[in-house]
Nucleic acid binder design. Sequence first.
DNA 1: TATTTTCTTTACCGTTCGATCAAGAAAAAC
DNA 2: GTTTTTCTTGATCGAACGGTAAAGAAAATA
Lengths: 195, 195
Amino acid sequence: MARTRKFDENQALDAALRLFWEKGYVATSLQDLEKGTGLNRASIYNAFGNKRSLFKKCLTLYVGRVQAMLEGVIGTATSSREAIKNWLACVIDFQFNQETPSGCLVILSALERHQHDRETREIVTALFRREQEVIQKVLEEGVQRGEFPADFDCVGVAWAITSATSGMVVLSMADLPVSALQEVFRSTMRLLDGK
Amino acid sequence: MARTRKFDENQALDAALRLFWEKGYVATSLQDLEKGTGLNRASIYNAFGNKRSLFKKCLTLYVGRVQAMLEGVIGTATSSREAIKNWLACVIDFQFNQETPSGCLVILSALERHQHDRETREIVTALFRREQEVIQKVLEEGVQRGEFPADFDCVGVAWAITSATSGMVVLSMADLPVSALQEVFRSTMRLLDGK
DNA sequence: TATTTTCTTTACCGTTCGATCAAGAAAAAC
DNA sequence: GTTTTTCTTGATCGAACGGTAAAGAAAATA
């Protein structure tokens, strides 16, 4: 009864995500999006609405992936300590992975806050909260398992680790070498040793 | 022999800095700059060159101030521990200070890296390096003073603290409450306790 | 195969972008 | 007070911006 869509919507979304990830919301023009997705301008509007809603779809997609990666890495570890170690290593790998852009769309969006509506900002806030919660939970499990002392500050350390992941991303975006991130990594891990 | 400038160049630079600080380089238009500085467009070009060079002047001004604040806070402390404590507290205060925008122009510029030339990116990199150096130095003084054990990892902890300051700024931009930053603060301070 | 419906293409909309230029205004030097 | 020089103003530039409308192309139904 009707014509089918020629392009793969997920594929186009992926391409758009990559662009926003690299240049941010404002600096990514519709011209960029046309070239990146291979779609015509009107096709983009037809499929995704306007630039704002396309961005929001990309951000949601990205957040979902990061969260899946976070929970995957944390969930498959055999100890609390290993979980944190793997997560921090994962963040570093991700920054220097050649297949994906460096940086982080969520952090970028956090800093572009003036450009976005409340709903978008809440997506950003939620990811950080979620990261802290997941880490806190794995630390609490570590306490129960006897890996950490009973009075271990799970809340505070979880926030510190969450902060450290953002900090590492910023450092890598500021052209600091891997070694700097590794120093952050090692020192952050030491938060799991003390009292 | 000639007419004198009516406006205060430093004052205009301050206004421009504030705009870039709030919205970033791309999102700040010349219209914004005209309104913010109170200057006519051509006066801006006459005084500061183009948008790029105006931005660079603002960034340099900002970096100088942050560095002065860093060195001031660290330099006036009576112990290594107190120096770090004051610096972290200073960063938190700064984020919630109502008189200045939240966020950080340097971090924003790091994430907008694709917009800037190498010289600008190097200014950004340099500030992070400088922050780490200053902190490392004060830690090393702490070791000599017997505040920390002889094998204390000054390099790594300095990077962790540098990362923590960026992390806290990101968290505050992501609308996390002060309490979250304070948790990062407390946990980061604990890096000075362990072995 | 004819029809219907959706997707795609092309051209274009008004607006805003960064940047410039020529004319007018004002202060210092003589 | 005249001259000289710089600063300021207002108008305007071409390009790029996000977004849209109408015509053409193509696939699924009948």
